[in-house]
Nucleic acid binder design. Sequence first.
RNA 1: GCGGGCGUGGUGGAACGGUAGACACAAGCGACUUAAAAUCGCUAGAGCCAAGCUCGUGCGGGUUCGAUUCCCGCCGCCCGCACCA
Length: 851
Amino acid sequence: MSRYEPSVIEPKWQKAWDEAQAFLAKRDPARPKYYVLEMFPYPSGRIHMGHVRNYTMGDVVSRYKTAQGFSVLHPMGWDAFGMPAENAAMERGGHPKDWTYSNIADMRGQMKPLGLSIDWTREFATCDPEYYGQQQAMFIDMMEAGLIYRKNAVVNWDPIDMTVLANEQVIDGKGWRSGAAVERRELTQWFFKISDYSEELLNALDGLTNWPEKVRLMQANWIGRSRGLQFGFETVGAPAGFDLLEVYTTRPDTLMGASFAAISPDHPLAKALEADPAVAEFVALCRKGGTSAEEIETAEKIGFDTGIRVKHPLNPDWELPVWIANFILMDYGTGAIFGCPAHDQRDFDFATKYDLPIKAVFEPNDEPIVALTEAYVPLKSERVRYIRGFAGADVQTGDEGVATAIAHAEAQGYGKGVTKFRLRDWGLSRQRYWGCPIPVVHCATCGVVPEAKENLPVRLPDDVTFDIPGNPLDRHPTWRDCTCPKCGAEARRETDTMDTFVDSSWYYARFTAPRAATPTSAADADYWMNVDQYIGGIEHAILHLLYSRFFARAMNKTGHLPAKAIEPFDALFTQGMVTHEIYKTTDARGRPVYHLPEDIVRSDAGATLADGTAVEVIPSAKMSKSKKNVVDPMNIIAAFGADTARWFVMSDSPPERDVEWTSSGAEAAYKFLGRIWTLCSRIGDMPADHVGEGDLDLRKAMARAVNDVTLGIEGFAFNKAIAKIYEFTNTLSKANASTATMKDAIRTLAQLMQPMVPHIAESIWSYQGGTGLCCQAPWPKADPALLVNDEVILPIQINGKRRAEITVPRDMPASEVEKIALADEAVIKFLAGQPVKKIIVVPGRIINVVV
RNA sequence: GCGGGCGUGGUGGAACGGUAGACACAAGCGACUUAAAAUCGCUAGAGCCAAGCUCGUGCGGGUUCGAUUCCCGCCGCCCGCACCA
């Protein structure tokens, strides 16, 4: 066997897999299917280590399941619409389409050398008209099914560029290019009625038992079901039509602590008051800055007293002032609240600032409050003493207080208990070119009309320029002007395109029949759905995954997915990031300067540049170009091969946690593969008739390795599976067993490694006489008889501290074990005659003697 | 600001509530070599000279015979916050 040369063996085996069509997914009713999917990449043009890690994980699962006899679907595609393509067109000319497809070609070229077991015949990009045309067809079906509607919503408006900005393009309240102060402006927008499914999307989380608990919790909190009281405040001095101010509260038990009412600057009442220049000025002030909740909630709380008063529902003589406040969101509840400063920190801050009364409604059950320096907000499950209660017992929990307050309001008729959700409808309109056109036309007589299905896809026009900010579709007369599909009159096309979350909300379904003339094909969807294992970043825990869950339901309602697929992802795994140290120095003006890893010299004294300048090392940061801590997988593959890159990203950290890329770790991975290669060569050179006495021990170690690696892969503990492979390799290299057993052992080792390092595994497999391709060989099974040990070592604790250990037969009864333990010399010494109070024997585990 | 998560040797990490530190990196020592690299072998949480003992899983409490693991409070870092993908 020659030297280990990844650059020779890797292309060779990739070609062999291609020729064998090893990864072509086929509907095979005779076999159980397995659908493994990684979140598809945005085609930035370069793959990074995060991709390598993500796709290697999926590949391990895919190859393992293939070896287990499943008919596996493991596809790949491109989330290809979105802003970066337009930004590139603006910055360096060219067309988003050319930029995107050329990036896709580049990235595909970088991914193929990784040796992933992907069925590339199913590849597509969301910007292919064949894909987005099907999306338009579903949009029309969903429109007709009542799942889509239009309403006004606020956007970030850049008054200089005259364009809508994404939240990430608003920096410190200013447009990223123009630097203009961003304003909130209302536009008519398209929405999916995801709120129709709030309850169901929440309840169905309980069934997603193979999802991480944290993701289910995050989604549940995002959907945010709350039970509260809605009631109308009778107003005094309000404009006509505003006799009642509807408010919603989840803490009606604090009604007697109310000191003001507050409305959102976007509330209809605020709008009605804008005739007053002072109100208009204040509302304009509130509208400054971006639309993101983060920005709104971290902004300084400001308010404006409208002069309007409302009557307290429990005492009409008690009047509260109505304020407009910037932290009240129009999207949640009714856009109006009553403030109870004593038991809500935001209200407390507001009341302190504007000198409004702060009256406690309840106090801790055991100690009265002397003075409130901050809001007192106990858990609702905690029992408190009501000093300004009006319903229920004096001492009750917050939950009970809320329930009795609602009952009181309903009995007296001033309000009713309602359930509300935090989840808002999904706004899908984007005022941008590079997205899926919304397939409707606006007709003067017929109104908003869906495009006829035979006219789909509504293609994006190619002749557009990006020299002026704004949406080129808006200023493209020959595209924009069209005829009404209903009456034939002149009409205008909708120029908004769809949010890219729409594209990624159904690609998993399209992969089951990527060339079908309809969005999905029933037979394929029925065979392949659901995704058995979905893998992606935790950053998608809420939006992408929630939208996909909704979209699957909407597709089911419109006949595009079977009912069994309304929860499209049976199991979810969220992997961590790949990080790297950052190397930083400071220039003469005190600004940070970052350095590439290859420019750093490490020594005992620390890190320096080549000229000896000391470098600050910032550990474990997300790889980013601006910090220059990016490791290009292509360089690693060129230097060490794909197997080394794959092995390293799988070996060093548990997959759900971040992994820090280190060059020493990568070198170590390469050395290990070289060691395996040498070992294989040595075993290959053994005389066929060599007999060793270590056969049984080696077979036991082999069974243990098969068992542990299998459990590791099954449990997504790839780092542990790899540790077991190291252990078994160490055992094998030291073993003195017969040639046949040694060969058997290294073939098994190759199989166990195959999901992670498939190329070297194939070389070992074929060199040692394995049949066919290693990636198509059935997964090894551990002989259960070889897994059990006749004796176990039991540590003995005295008062919880380990003091001795004994070796006993595996099946020895606890009473016998006790006797042996108490007779142990070290135990006797430690007990020193003290009486034994209790002795705990955990069979096969531990003995604890309590004195 | 709100929601979620994470925190273990010099480093990455392992440990059904049951021997803390498997496996690996870096380090040190040794073998081979004229020498270096590569390779192979050994050592290694900290402290006390040591057999051994004490301390030790971000910090402070609690539950338990026993806590890295469960509960409460803090600190630090990371992710998300609806137009980034």
